[in-house]
Every structure is written in C-alpha cells, then in structure tokens.
Design a protein around this nucleic acid. Sequence first.
DNA 1: ATGGCGAATCAAACCGGTTTACACTCATCA
DNA 2: TGATGAGTGTAAACCGGTTTGATTCGCCAT
Lengths: 343, 343
Amino acid sequence: MSRTTIADVAREAGVAKATVSHALSGNRPISEETRAKVLAAAEKLGWVPSQSARALANRRANAIAVVLARDPEVIANDSFFPAFIAGVESVLSETETALILQVVPDRDAEERAYRSLAHGRADGALLLDLRDDDWRVPFLDDLDLPTVLVGAYDGPHPFSCVRTDDAAPIRDIIAHLRADGHERIAHVSGPLRYVHSRARALAYRDAVGDDRLLREGDFTAASGRALTAELLALPDRPTAILYSNDTMAIAGLSYARAQGLSIPADLAISGFDDDHLSAHLTPALTSVSSDPAARGRAAARLLRADILGAEPRTEVVDCNIVHFRESTGAPQTTAPTVSRRTP
Amino acid sequence: MSRTTIADVAREAGVAKATVSHALSGNRPISEETRAKVLAAAEKLGWVPSQSARALANRRANAIAVVLARDPEVIANDSFFPAFIAGVESVLSETETALILQVVPDRDAEERAYRSLAHGRADGALLLDLRDDDWRVPFLDDLDLPTVLVGAYDGPHPFSCVRTDDAAPIRDIIAHLRADGHERIAHVSGPLRYVHSRARALAYRDAVGDDRLLREGDFTAASGRALTAELLALPDRPTAILYSNDTMAIAGLSYARAQGLSIPADLAISGFDDDHLSAHLTPALTSVSSDPAARGRAAARLLRADILGAEPRTEVVDCNIVHFRESTGAPQTTAPTVSRRTP
DNA sequence: ATGGCGAATCAAACCGGTTTACACTCATCA
DNA sequence: TGATGAGTGTAAACCGGTTTGATTCGCCAT
C-alpha cells in the first residue's frame, strides 16, 4: 500500500502539508515556483494520494454503485447488462470514479447493501430492473442517496431518470408485419412486473388491438421455447411472433423449425435487444438494438450531475433501431441487414 | 450521508468512543451489560459505521477489484463473466466486501487504475483473460497488491491461482466423435494469445495429432461463421467441428444448415462454455459447462485468504461437464441432455 | 507613519473510525 | 496486608488527507 504520505511529500518539498494539498487541488493560490517544487517532490517519491483518506476528508467516496437482486442465472442471460456497464464506465473513468457492483440474494441483503453504500461507500446508485411501486425508490429517497432510475418509472419520485421509447420499435415492427399481410401476430413478453417488459407488452396490445396472443415469459430460452410451443398449438396459430428479447426468440425460432415450419415463410419472428448472435443466425433474426452503452453513459452523467447538486431531470435516450432481417422476410440484398431508425 | 457518528452513539450510551468500537468489534472484553447499552444506543440512533473512516483507520478498503481491458463489444459477448462475478459476490457478501469493477480502454488507463486501486481503494484484485508473459503479473507484484490469477499461467509468479482442466473435456469430446466414426475433426479456437484458448487448442492438437484443421477465431459470431465457411470449403471438409465457445458454434451451426448440411448427420458440432441458449436450440448444442460461478467463488476465497496473509496456492476447480446433445448425435432419449462428468 | 489589502504559506483542527497506553476495581495469593 | 493481575473502561494518539483561521510580507493609498 501507499507508504509515502502527503507529509513525506511536504517534507521533501520543504513546505507544509496544506501547501501540498492546495498545490494539487488548486483550492488556494500557490505560487508557480512552490507548485513546481511540490510536483517534483511528489513525482520523485511516487506519491499517490490515499483514496480512503481523501474519501473521509471529502465525505465523498468517489464511487457509485449498482446493486443487482437477480438470480445469477438470469444475469448470465442478459446481454444488456455488460454493455450498459461498459457505457457507465466510459463516463466514470473521466473523473476517477469507481463502480461498485453488488449481487444480492434477497431483499434483506439488498437493504443492507444500500445502507452500507449510503454510509460512506458510494456517492450514488443506479437503479435497474424497475418494477411498479418499486420499494427501492422510497427507500433510497429515505437514505438520501443520489440515484438515477434506468427505465421508465410511473410513480412519484425525486430522482433523475433515463428512459427509452420501447413502444415505437414495437409499433414499427408490427406495421412492417401487417404490411407483409400478417394478421395473427403474437407477443412473448418478459415478466410483466418489470416496467420495461410491460411497456413493450402494452405497445403490442395497443398496436394489435387485443392481447389474446400475448404470453408472459421470463426472458429465458426455456420459456421462449415453451410459449412458442403453446402458441403454435393454437387452432388459429399466429403467423408472426414478437419476442421481448433475443434469447427467447432464438429458442422459439429453433423450436418452430424443428416442428417443420420454415422461417419466415410459415412464421415470422422478431426479437428485441439485438444479441450479438442474432445477425449471424440463418435466418438472421430481426431485432431491436437499443444501444445499452448509450444508456449507461447517460445514466452515469445524470448521476454525476446529481451528486454535484444538479436538479433531477429525465432524459429520453432515443437509440432504438429496428434491424429488419431475414426472420421477418426482409429483402435479401447483398447487405445482410436493413436498418431503420425508429421515428 | 451518515450524520450520526460513533461519538453520538457513545454519548447516547454514556460511554467512550473506544468502548463503542470494542463492543462492536469484540477486540477487547466488554461487559455484557455495557455491550447491551451500546447496541441499544446504536440501534436507537440507526448508526451505520462510516466505511471511509473505517477504511482509513484499518488501512483496508474492504473491497476487491476486477479490471477489464476488453472492448465493450467483447464483454457483451461473454457469458462467462456475469456468472463468474455472481460467484465472486456470493463469497464477498459474507464479509461485507465490495467489488469494484473497472473497464478501461487501453493499457495506460489500466496501469492508472491498478495504481489507484492499490493505494487505498481495494485490498486485492482478480486477474482475468491471462496472456503469455502478461505484463500485469509483474506489475501487480510490484504494486504489492494481493492478486489471484484466474486461469492457468505458466510464467513465474507469487500469486494464488484458480485453474481448470480444459484439456480433459476436449479429449472427451474428440473420443466421443471418434467413436462415432469421425476422422476429420476441426477446431475453431479463440485468440491464441489467451492462455485458456491456447490450452484448448493444444489439447485438440494433442488428441487429433496435427493442427491442419485448426483455425484461430476471436470468440465472436462473425468469426465463427467465417471460419466455418472456410472449413466447409475445403476439398476434404471436416465432418465435425469443435468450437472454443458457443457463440461461434451457434453461428457456425446456423451457417452450415443454411448450406444445406444437416446436423449432426453431415456435420457434428460442439461448443464450449454452455451458453444458456445451447440446450434449447434444435438441434441442441453439445457443449461444456464450466461452472463459472464455482470459479468465481474459488477465486474470491483465495483472494480473501491472500489478503489475510495466507500463503499463495493454486486451486484446480474440477467442474467441466460435457453435455452431449443432439448436435454431436447424442442418443435422442426423453431427456434432452446426456451429461457426463469428465474423468 | 499608518492602515488596509491581497497573495502566499503554515499550523492546527477536522473527517469518523481503531488502537494503544493507562487507570481503576476487585478478587486472589503469599 | 500488600503485591499481583484479570477484567473493564477511558483519554488520546493515529490513519492520511482537506479545510480553516492566523500570520507574514509586500505594496499602495491616506
């Protein structure tokens, strides 16, 4: 660990500790000459200020946190999360801020985690996987921990918020399918307790008119497969299925083909979130890329502003792009992918 | 943030700060009666000790770090990482230790990150994605930051190490394919600069006898597809391909089918790492589940021991299980998956 | 000569815990 | 009866930074 302290540097430079501190922070005027001496001494001794001492004195941890209450199994399923984190990091690294990641098994552990974070470990938190009336919202408000909500949240809250318009791409895909003559379009959603799953399901219902062909999945391949089987067994089976993520879509596609259906002739299929695999499947899977990294960057920036005392605000990241590919009968050009920005 | 301090608790309980500290840490004997008073006061005031003050006084951050120098694109590809992290967390949560995650764009940023971590931010680090003569090994040794290497590392080093035997499942799969009559077995590897990719490639070469049908990929779907095309275009095309991860395998499988090959009759395919999709594809993909969470747990435990001053040691986590599924012509029983523990 | 003022620097207090050195009480033992 | 020491508790030092109040010095206006 750091053996050399600010006192060593001060001695080496022949000045007081305070002078060293000011020379580096610029909080007080220091003559150019002295500053040079200080920098030289720091360089010579290879001094790196102690993060913990700084955190204590500043009452700032220089860290933000993400707490995940998901099942490890589900975390591994998720292509959104890693890219989101990468986006967050790209902003944090500008300010030497660290990201603390916690995976907790239950609500009790989650509460403890947030408490500990609020008491000196972190300066703020990002909230993912929002649900209706999410208990964490009032809880974090109570803890007085600056927070940014990632995803739409309907209830009242004092926080900044990053959201996207998931309804537009859904409408876009359905319009596309309708234009191709599809009349029975089904939707396999994610768990409806999540606000983003429900937003997609509602957009589907609004566009289709009813939800008789809506099935609630859980984002896993197993549920995609099972619900596809269920839908295809209907007397009036759907001619197109819209899945709320690519994992379910790929499992569904695979199942449908095994049943002898050809894609997209017998069944058109669309995913959501644009998994890295999707463009390389045969047929390539139509999906919606939502640029998780952009959302991560936006969330990190909002949180930083929040920590510095800015007013909370909501930012809509408009980054959903529908990639129409072969699984919905996209025209087969030399370019395998036809992209359209959602309006 | 934490307004109530240990001094408030001491006043409330009518004792000295030191007594509060001892009552909670148990470092000194405190009478049951006094301890009860202290606990009651702490409870009443809702006191949570400040992590930063504690970190400074203890010279311990109660945090460990993982620094990733990968491309965000590649991170999103990886099903190993999230599960690994979940395993790490399950051990850390036992001791109120936080995990700091940093994604850095280049080596310069990576060095800065490790320096800052070593100076009060973290007590130790986990090293992933090891390469030959990895510069980080001597660098971290120099920084005097307790470290655990995840993956085999051949060079000399003073650290603990978690490794797995990736050669055994490769041998196992090849033996299985041979038994089914396959003679031309190809391998699409990961980047050979990574030690784990090379270990698999070497196991393949040793089992097959030569590496004429070895192609170096980069774990992406695009490379899986491209190299599959290359292999299938050979005059003596392989009848089986072993991929070093499932993403490449699925892309390859998809391509082969589009070429009119039937799987596994015309081409047997095996992946590695057992993606959550693989068991649900049709045909289900043979793969090797390597229990990343178990490796995460082992790594976290070794690091904790290391931080507490234990001698470094190497732990071999034997958790590779080959799941023989339809893509290599597994017998089609009612149970879709036949598992065999590698010897 | 005197007061006022800004710039540069320093010593000391402070952040909120942990740890050390010491004091006090009471039972035990020679 | 005085020495010994185990059992509890406290005050103060300490971890390594940042921030504040005071001080010194040069310079200008009065």
